[in-house]
Design a protein around this nucleic acid. Structure first.
Lengths: 147, 147
DNA sequence: CTGTGTGCAAACTCTTTGCATAAGT
DNA sequence: ACTTATGCAAAGAGTTTGCACACAG
């Protein structure tokens, strides 16, 4: 159950924060527990704020934004490139790609083994590749369309 | 020279607009000439607005936004997924991918032959792939780093 | 104690919208 | 003429920031 952060979770989150040079404050610990307590997650600031409130963790939206930013700069999170206004953060920092459900704006990691391998193009002149993002956009097959 | 739209350009743009069910008004013709007059382009609403003003085409930023939106819905443009606030539009509608220069926020098409081929993962349950976006992020090789 | 973190509200940026005027067919 | 597009300014969404108070070490 995600709303209950175990002692082990707490220690782990505290360690992550310390390692990143961030003081383990109430809010950061609580948000860290939500973020890193379960599997890989993809959320926006608003989603996380809502979860925090529902988990009875009093935290302001501004602090959620600031915290997500700090975590990202510390390398604990990764921003996902989606067009549109909202910024998504991914708790999975490893090199991986995403499915994107266009209808409901949900992101999902692509399994690392089912992974898309690609032959990269050569970067121009004095440039080098820092990262490759792959977004596989999904739409529902029309269920009415029996064919 | 891009600022001079030839008669041929005008006819072509007019045709594109009509084909999309959009009336060929001054502003749409002018913006269309800027967008589709040269090679493939990647711009934000602000960039296009600036260009229009510089080309002595009086058009409001709101109209630029509306026009870009309409063109996109008509299939004349394509939105590019970049994280962050600004929305980029691409005049190249074909299936292709992008280099992204992180330092200056510039987009560039990846040549279709140098193209990155990838073995796609199988989409979940009742889903099907609508499009795959690949963004290759580039940073400058450190010139000081002689090694 | 001393300094960093947090909350709140205000500021900011990018984008969309409402309404009166102008332009297209 | 009749309808659709445009311009302007105001409204909206998402995100950031400044400052006083609270908390961690």
């Amino acid at each position: 159950m995600r709303f209950m952060s175990s002692a082990a979770d707490q220690d782990r989150v505290a360690g992550m924060l310390k390692g990143a040079g961030l003081r383990p404050t109430r809010q950061r610990m609580a948000l860290g527990a939500l973020l890193f307590g379960g599997g890989d997650r993809h959320l926006t600031a608003e989603m996380l704020h809502l979860e925090a409130i529902q988990s009875r963790i009093p935290v302001s939206l501004a602090t959620v934004y600031n915290t997500l930013r700090q975590f990202t700069e510390a390398g604990l999170l990764r921003e996902v490139a989606i067009e549109g206004s909202k910024t998504y953060f991914d708790t999975n920092i490893s090199d991986h790609h995403h499915f994107y459900f266009e209808r409901d704006g949900v992101l999902m990691d692509i399994e690392h083994d089912g992974v898309s391998l690609l032959s990269l193009p050569k970067p121009p002149d004095g440039m080098e590749i820092s990262r490759v993002d792959v977004l596989v956009r999904l739409v529902a097959k029309n269920p009415n369309e029996t064919r």
